[in-house]
Amino acid sequence: MFKLNLFQSARSQALILLIPAFGVYTLFAIWPLIDVVILSFQEWNGISADRKWVGWENYNYIFNNDPVFWVSLKNTVIWTILSIVFPPLVGLLLAIGLNQKLFGRASLRAIYYLPVIIAPIAVATMWRWMYDPFFGLFTQILTDMGLGFLARDWLGDRNIALYSMFVAYVWQHVGFSMVLFLAGLQGVQSTLIDAARIDGASRFEIFRYVTLPALSPTITIVLVLSTISSLRAFDIVYGMTGGGPAQSTQMLAMWAFTQSMQIFDFGRGSAVSVVLLVITLAIVIPYMRWSQAREEAVK
């Protein structure tokens, strides 16, 4: 009798502890996720009372009649590929460097990480000014070096705007990869490295055959997190170019927002969102399974 009571009260106490977090999470995170899927099969301007079901029409439209959708998909793919190559690579190199006992390494680490904590929208504003074609930093430096003919309208030229924007993104995100790699490197057992050194392995061999294999879980984590955060790119696009010039920096997250919140076509905007969502899930679900399996293995 006493046992039963205790059990019941434990359960009700658990509920009291769980309800605030799970309530707000379900209502404000999970419901919008479901609603975006519903909206993608409807026609709605965001204001009127009735949301009309239109079946696959929105998808039909974005796939067949919306050239901007394909441009933004292409840009998102380019952006994602760049994002899983450059920030992690630079981050790894910095982490390997900073893993040595160097003078002032704490300050160096703090400097590389500093851009991570700056608001993305402020990074966009900063870099927009640095890219100013007349008085911005890049044009000034090139002019001072006598290379003024190389100066461009960095964000106004549709051939390079996406890459100009990416440079700002790298500047902001390298520190994040670096910190994760530094943590991963702490986990590499120094006894293994010492043993390899005694056996006469060169620095490169130690890196290639000891450090890198031990780092492989960290590499997976960094690559997945980089992919997810690159798919999310919104603030930097909104702040730097708004998707222009001529949609040359348009990306899926931005295009979904523009369709829904600026053109007031919630159906088409949500269809674009669902495409982005499906791409994200295709990466996230295998990753969650992998990390689950890894955790079980540790136990």
């Binding site: 404000f28 995170a29 419901w31 919008p32 996720l33 609603d35 975006v36 909206l39 965001g46 997810i228 798919l231 999310r232 919104f234 997250a253 979904a256 927002f257 829904s260 919140m261 919630f266 905007g269 949500s270 969102s273 669902v274 982005l276 969502l277 994200t280 996230v284 990753y287 969650m288």
Partner: peptide, 13 residues
Amino acid sequence: MIPFQVMLAPLFT
């Protein structure tokens, strides 16, 4: 893992 950027419109709604 889910980007909230895909849900801006339903969140507004």
